[in-house]
Amino acid sequence: MAATLVSRKTDWTGIIFAAVLTLVIVFPLVVVGTWAFTNVWRYPSVIPQEFGLRFWNQTLARADVWSSISTSLTLAFTVTALSAAICLPAAYAFARLDFPGRNLLFFSFLAGHAFPKFGLLVAIAGIFLQLNLIGTFWGVVLIQLVGTLLFMIWIPVAAFQAVDRRMEEAARDVGASPFRVFWSITLPQAGPTIAAAILLSFVGTFYETEGAWLIGAPQVRTLPVLMISFINNQPVIQYGAVLSVLLWVPSFIALLFARKVVNSGSFARGFGG
């Protein structure tokens, strides 16, 4: 039925797209993966001379790697927890309560996305400069927190609005206070979607590079920031490759859980498509 433009027999168009995209998108990552498990790969051999885990041991023995892993995790956890703590109640309020200026405030979260991001970061850094937040952990937390607001409010608002009001009323009816209703009914019902939002915001924070680099570096060194310095200054290619593989783990988890969500057209509509 839907095959109006592409014939159903042999999908040559599709096969060509698939081949080209595989080459362009998957191949570079496979190369990185190969480098990570290579002990020796000297020019001009097409395949590595020796595979092995030697550089995993070496990379994981580096203190700067461990400290930036822990910095990144601490940051991501802190930002996500803070973001959840301030955004979820706000999302609930937007979804369920009426108050003056509700719509305007709701759309105000778009403001951060109406400007070129790095320009905005520089403007924020200008403010941080006066507050001595440059080069501090909390400076980075703040800047990454701002980055999570839109998602952490808009997605949960949708989730809360999808919860059947009658379910909540039924809970009031059997004697639950408004807070109890939220805790026992609304939150569990909206749970899966909110979990997806939290996961996305965790992953987003984990990879956030520009804010961390501008505000935090070199004092606050997250994994992506360390990765930049590896790329710039580290002659041993495998360090970067191993770090890339390590760095990709949260993405992989997000890929497993959030793929359906991203593919469901509503996600794109959230970007205005």
């Binding site: 998957v26 990552l29 190369v31 990879y207 790329i231 490759a241 890339s244 990709w248």
Partner: peptide, 20 residues
């Protein structure tokens, strides 16, 4: 495949670019 780059942080992409 078209969605996949969304799950590849640009820093890993940069590294892959240089390697390829």
């Amino acid at each position: 495949l078209a969605i996949f780059p969304m799950f590849v942080p640009s820093i890993i992409l940069s590294f892959a670019f240089i390697r390829v």
